[in-house]
Amino acid sequence: MESKINRYSKQLILINSLFIIIWLVVSVFPFIWTFWGSFKVKADFFSRADWMFAVTGVNTLVETGDTSTVKAYVESWTEGEFWKATMNTAIITVSVVTISLFLGTLGAYALSRSTYKYTFWILIAALIFRAMPHITLVSGYLFPFFQLNVWGILPTTIIVLVAINQPFTLWLLYSFFKTVPKELDESALIDGCTYFQAFRFVIMPVMWPGVVTAGLFSMMLAYNDFTVTSLLLNQQNYTMVPKINAYLGTIEHSGNYMWAVSSVVSATAPLFMIIMFFQRQLISGLTAGAVKG
């Protein structure tokens, strides 16, 4: 019915498609360019003579005997110890996601089921905490952490990231729990379950979509973090993002700049895979956030 009166005119379709194509190029092209360039040598990717060198790989052919090379990847993963950074990122990401989902689901369930007024103030406090720039928190951590001698190690960073992540996780899961009817756990309580049993055996099984979404956001925060990891970890324990920044800082090695380029690709590829897989959950999470403020 709608299609008859609400049909798009030809010009509109044309302008529209053109706009989307341009916007897609703007969004995606930088990543394709970096991906392609990461297989070239520095003289090509940052060519003084002609940017086309980055496409054709003239200098790469001269230097390595082929138009593309995985030299930067091999070197950064072995000599640059990017494998270590990858492992640290994996440890931190998995731990942060697990712990923050565990704490978050418990807390958000309680917030959504309590009818007392203090839940409102707790949520407001969480909102204020969410707005704090991470760097201001880090400036508060450093001194006590030095005194307690817990600076520089992974567990500290994991706990800090979990805490920083809690406000958002709480709000997100709170709005998901609100959509689960109260009658469900009330009937479980009447049947003699404790609150924890009702939560564990009745509510959790229907909450998986919400938990996946919250987990996705925790993952992105832990995986992408720069502020906390670069200042709270010592150099040996660096995760991927501060590691890339460290490659940029040291100029003594001429290959280092290409290490950064190839590491950027190594770091983004898994993230893109995961997002491609869970795109629907990501968008539903952002929507829930928008509706609930």
Binding site: F102, L103, G104, L106, G107, Y109, A110, L111, I122, A125, A126, F129, L137, Y141, I159, V160, V162, A163, I164, Q166, P167, L170, Y195, F199
Partner: peptide, 12 residues
């Protein structure tokens, strides 16, 4: 229920 999450936020 709320204690672990609240403690983490308060401390950090």
């Amino acid at each position: 229920f709320f204690f672990p999450s609240g403690l983490a936020m308060l401390l950090f």
